[in-house]
Amino acid sequence: MTDVTFILHDGTRRIVDVADGISVMQAAVMENIKGIDGECGGCLSCATCHVYVESLEAGELPAKDPDEDALLEGVAAELRPESRLACQIVMSPALVGLVVRVPERQV
């Protein structure tokens, strides 16, 4: 189990303890984190779990699939260097201290 901190659009912080092997998108949906949708269930066919990773460098996160990059091109909110799809961030103890910011909108 590893804590993930979500910063909601209104600035509220919520900390969720996530089991290894569960994605940040799954954890957010199960815990009702407003602003992360995950419509496709994590099979890389939508881009509704867009988050900004605040705490870790890109190299510390799971590598990006080319399909993730393609989907990120179409996200509704501003695309930034720290943009990721939360479904592709699968939790493990290596991600201790992870903080993600929820964007203004997903669609």
Binding site: C40, G42, C43, L44, S45, D67
Partner: peptide, 12 residues
């Protein structure tokens, strides 16, 4: 039912 070229199948 998915568009031609959809990769959805590969992820399911």
């Amino acid at each position: 039912a998915e568009p031609v070229g959809s990769k959805l199948c590969q992820r399911i």
